[in-house]
Design a protein around this nucleic acid. Structure first.
Length: 486
RNA sequence: GGCCACGUGGCGGAGUGGUUACGCAACGGUCUGCAAAACCGUGUACCCCGGUUCAAUUCCGGGCGUGGCCUCCA
C-alpha cells in the first residue's frame, strides 16, 4: 500500500518515496518557549505525531528519525523574562523562562498522547552550526555583512519564492517589508544580528567583532542539517510558516549546500479557529492546552478528546475548535472504549489503512472506525445472546472488528484501554457537595422502593424532584445511575 | 493592494464527472409502568452565474462569502 502525501511545494499529492528507507527523516518546527502552549500549537504536534507513528509502522520504528526543535532564543522570550524575573540578570531570567515553559510544553504534549521525537534540539545549543552555515553563505556570495548584521541576499537565488508561490516582484508590491538602510534589497532577511547589551550573545561569524545572535530562520536550517543531513524527506509545520519562515529556510539550506531541494515533501497543517473566529488573546478566545486539561468553562477534558477532535478534521483543512467539537469527540471515544478490544498484533482494517495512507485522511479513517464499532456491537450482542444459553462457550467468537477498532485507534495514537470513560460522570460528581450527593442517593433509593411497590406516582414525583435539581436518571439493568444535566 | 486556501444536508465532516460517506442532532419504531438510557430504522445536501460535457456538487472561467499569509503568530 503506497503512502501518499501532499507537498506544498509542488501542490500535489504524491506517492512517498523515502530517500533512505532505513532512515526516514522528518523535521517539524517546534514551539518558541515563552508561555503555555495553546491549542493551536497542539495541532501540528498532533498531526505530525500521527504521521510519525504511521512512518514508524511502515518503515519500522528504528528507521524513522523525527526532529522537532525548541526555539529558546527570541525577543518574546527576552520580554517575558524581564517581566517575570526583573531582579535576575537577563540571561538567567531567560533560562528560567525557557526551562519552565519547556517542561510545561512536554507535560501538555504528553497528555495529548504524543510520542517524543527522536531529537528535540534547542537553538541555543546549535549556534555553532548556525555560524558555520552563515560563513558558507557569505563565502558563496548569498549573504553579506552590513553594520554587524549578516543578511541573506534574496536576489542571489533565482528561484526564491517557489514554496509560497510569490515572485520577487510581488513581494515588493506587498510593500510591508521591513526597511533598513543597510539592506541591499528590502526583501533581504537577517541571518545574524548584533545583540543589545544584556541580551544573549555569541561570537559573531563573518569577521564581525560585536557579539550577536542568530535570526529566526537559520536555526531550523542548522538543526535539520545536523540531525538529518543536507536533504531529508519531510519538513512540517503550520501553514502560517510557509512564508517567510520556510521560504527562508529553503534559501539558506539550498544555497549553503548547493542542493536542488531542502526536503522532498513540505507538509503544512491548516489553521485553528475558535468558534469560527481567529484565536487571539485580544479576542478573548485564547485557550491553552493546560486550561483545557485543568478546567475550561468548568470542565476538564482528557487530552485524548482534543486529539480525537482535531483528527476528525483533515489536517490541511481549517479546524474549528468548539465546545461541541469536544463533546462529539468525547461521545465517540466513550462508545469506542466500551467495544474496542485491544489485542497484541492486531491490525486495523484495510479501509482504515487506505485512508491513513491517503495523505492522512483521518476523517475517513474515523468513519471506518464507526463502521467497525457497529460490527463490534453486533458481535457483542450475538455473544451476549449465546452466553445467555446454558452450556454456552466463548470459543469461536468473532472479535475481529473490535480488534481492528482498537488497532485503528492505536494508529491514531489513542490508547483506548487507558481511556477512562467515566470521566464525564466523575466530573459531574466533582461539582456536587457530599450532602447533596447523599440526598440524591436517598431519593434514588426511595424511588426504587416506590417502584418495587408499583407506586408510579410517587416514583415519578421523585424523578421530577431530582430533575428540578438538575439530576438526570438513567435506569439500566444493573440499577439506576445519574448525572448532572449540562 | 498582492499571493493562497476553503465554501457540501440542522451542525460537524469525507468523497465523487452519472451509483448510500460517516458522526451528532432530529424524526419514526422496539424496549420500558411512563420517561431517560440502550437498540433498530429514516435523511438525497453539495454558495451564485457562465462554459466544457450525453451528464458537474465534482473540470474550467467569473462573482460573492469566509479564513490565512504578505509583520521573527503553529
Amino acid at each position: 500500500m503506497d503512502l501518499k502525501l501532499y507537498d506544498t511545494l509542488t501542490r500535489e499529492k504524491r506517492v512517498f518515496r523515502a530517500l533512505d528507507p532505513s532512515n526516514v527523516r522528518m523535521y517539524v518546527c517546534g514551539p518558541t518557549v515563552y508561555d503555555f502552549a495553546h491549542i493551536g500549537n497542539a495541532r501540528p504536534v498532533i498531526v505530525f505525531d500521527v504521521l510519525f507513528r504511521l512512518l514508524q509502522r511502515v518503515y519500522g520504528a528504528e528507521h524513522v528519525t523525527y526532529v522537532r526543535n525548541v526555539t529558546d532564543v527570541d525577543d518574546k522570550i527576552n520580554a517575558r523574562a524581564a517581566e517575570e524575573y526583573p531582579d535576575l540578570p537577563l540571561n538567567e531570567a531567560i533560562r528560567e523562562v525557557t526551562k519552565k515553559t519547556d517542561k510545561q510544553f512536554h507535560d501538555d504534549v504528553a497528555a495529548l498522547g504524543c510520542l517524543s521525537p527522536t531529537h528535540e534540539p534547542r537553538a541555543t545549543e546549535h549556534v555553532g552550526e548556525m555560524r558555520e552555515l552563515i560563513e558558507r553563505l557569505v563565502k558563496s556570495g548569498n549573504a553579506y555583512v552590513a553594520e554587524d548584521n549578516v543578511l541573506f541576499s534574496v536576489a542571489s537565488m533565482p528561484d526564491y519564492g517557489r514554496l509560497s508561490h510569490r515572485s520577487l516582484d510581488e513581494m515588493i508590491a506587498g510593500a510591508r517589508v521591513e526597511v533598513a538602510p543597510y539592506k541591499h534589497d528590502p526583501r533581504d532577511f537577517v541571518l545574524w544580528k548584533p545583540s543589545k547589551p544584556g541580551e544573549p550573545a555569541w561570537p559573531s561569524p563573518a569577521g564581525i567583532k560585536t557579539p550577536g545572535r542568530p535570526g529566526w530562520h537559520i536555526e531550523c536550517s542548522a538543526m535539520a542539517w545536523k540531525f538529518l543531513g543536507e536533504t531529508f524527506d519531510i519538513h512540517g509545520g503550520g501553514i502560517d510558516l510557509v512564508f517567510p519562515h520556510h521560504e527562508n529556510e529553503i534559501a539558506q539550506s539550498r544555497c549553503a549546500f548547493r542542493t536542488p531541494v531542502m526536503t522532498n515533501y513540505w507538509m503544512h497543517n491548516g489553521f485553528l479557529q475558535v468558534e469560527g473566529e481567529k484565536m487571539a488573546k485580544s479576542a478573548g478566545n485564547f485557550v491553552t492546552i493546560r486550561e483545557l486539561r485543568t478546567g475550561w468553562r468548568d470542565f476538564s477534558w482528557p487530552g485524548d478528546v482534543l486529539r480525537f477532535a482535531m483528527l476528525s478534521t483533515h489536517y490541511r483543512q481549517p479546524f474549528d475548535f468548539t465546545h461541541f467539537s469536544l463533546e462529539q469527540a468525547a461521545v465517540a471515544l466513550n462508545v469506542f472504549s466500551t467495544f474496542a478490544y485491544p489485542t497484541a498484533g492486531a491490525k486495523p482494517s484495510n479501509e482504515f489503512l487506505e485512508a491513513m495512507h491517503d495523505d492522512l485522511n483521518t476523517p475517513r479513517a474515523i468513519a471506518e472506525l464507526h463502521r467497525l464499532l457497529k460490527a463490534s456491537k453486533e458481535g457483542a450482542f450475538e455473544l451476549t445472546d449465546r452466553m445467555s444459553r446454558p452450556g454456552a462457550m466463548l470459543i469461536d467468537s468473532d472479535f475481529s472488528a473490535a480488534e481492528q477498532l482498537a488497532a485503528g485507534l492505536d494508529y491514531l495514537g489513542i490508547n483506548i484501554s487507558n481511556y477512562d470513560r467515566d470521566w464525564t460522570r466523575k466530573q459531574s460528581f466533582s461539582g456536587v457537595s457530599p450532602q447533596l450527593k447523599s440526598k440524591i442517593d436517598d431519593l434514588i433509593t426511595a424511588r426504587a422502593e416506590a417502584r418495587t411497590r408499583k407506586e408510579w406516582k410517587e416514583s415519578d414525583r421523585i424523578r421530577d424532584e431530582l430533575a428540578k435539581m438538575g439530576v438526570v436518571l438513567k435506569d439500566t439493568k444493573d440499577g439506576t445511575t445519574w448525572e448532572i444535566a449540562r
